[in-house]
Computed example of a mutant assay.
Amino acid sequence: MQLNTIKPAEGATHAKRRVGRGIGSGLGKTSGRGHKGQKSRSGGFHKVGFEGGQMPLQRRLPKRGFKPLGGHLSAQIRLSDLQALPVDEVDVQALKQAGVIGQPVRYVKVILSGELSRKVALKGISATAGAKAAIEAAGGSVA
């Protein structure tokens, strides 16, 4: 095999369609563009989603919802989650090792849900006002 003998496999290529070359070709006269209208003209072009001046679908429908960019970085845990932990000093790393929160999480907040009857010390974790009161009532601290 030499470089000058390389060619595509049999049936891999086909002749380019020649339009506007007479009635017998099947693509004479209008060259497969139909009759009149913007798309039949040379340079006839409109944007994706353009509906001929009618209000486009993406503008007719209401705007809805919002996903915060850093939403996956924060998490909430319950007092009952703290109750189940085997350690007394709780930080983000301890929660990750226990499998309470996911690995990408950086910010954790304790919410008032469930019961806490033992002493826990929070380090680098925030808490709601009710959760903080419940933790301090059980003899713990929030730092």
Rank of each mutant, 00 (worst) to 15 (best):
K36C: 07
A137S: 12
S113V: 08
P56Y: 00
A143R: 10
Q2N: 08
K96I: 05
R118F: 06
K119C: 15
G26V: 03
K63M: 14
G49F: 02
R33A: 14
Q54P: 01
G43C: 11
K119A: 13
Y107V: 10
K63L: 15
H14P: 02
T30L: 10
G140P: 08
G65D: 07
V108R: 02
L82Q: 01
R78P: 01
L61W: 02
G24H: 07
I6G: 01
L3T: 15
S25L: 00
D88R: 14
M55T: 07
L112T: 12
K7D: 00
G130V: 09
K29D: 14
L79W: 05
S141I: 09
A133H: 14
G52M: 03
V19L: 09
R17P: 05
G65R: 08
A9Y: 02
I125D: 01
A94D: 10
V87C: 05
S42W: 10
R18W: 14
I23R: 11
P86R: 12
K96D: 00
R41L: 15
M55W: 00
V105T: 08
G11D: 02
A138N: 07
G140W: 11
G53R: 03
S42K: 14
L61C: 02
P68A: 09
I111M: 09
K132S: 14
S42D: 13
F45V: 12
L79K: 00
V19Y: 06
K132H: 09
M55R: 09
K63Q: 14
A137Q: 09
G43F: 11
L27Q: 07
K47M: 10
A9I: 00
L116S: 04
F66W: 10
S80Y: 02
D91Y: 04
A127M: 06
K47T: 12
A12Q: 04
G124L: 11
A9M: 06
Q76M: 05
R21A: 12
K109V: 10
Q103E: 13
Q54T: 03
D81F: 04
L69K: 13
A143K: 11
G44V: 08
K123V: 15
P56I: 02
A129M: 13
K29R: 10
Q83F: 05
H72I: 09
G52C: 05
H46W: 06
P62R: 06
K16D: 06
G140Q: 10
I135S: 10
I23F: 08
K36R: 13
P62N: 05
V48S: 15
A15V: 00
F45C: 14
L3F: 15
L82W: 02
Q2T: 04
G34I: 05
Q83Y: 04
S141Q: 15
Q97E: 15
A137E: 06
V105N: 03
H72T: 13
L116M: 03
A9F: 01
L82N: 00
G32I: 04
L3P: 13
H72L: 07
Y107L: 07
A134D: 15
K63R: 15
G130E: 15
G43S: 12
E89G: 13
T30R: 10
F66C: 06
Q83S: 07
R18M: 15
K7N: 06
R18P: 06
V92S: 07
T128F: 06
V110N: 01
L95K: 03
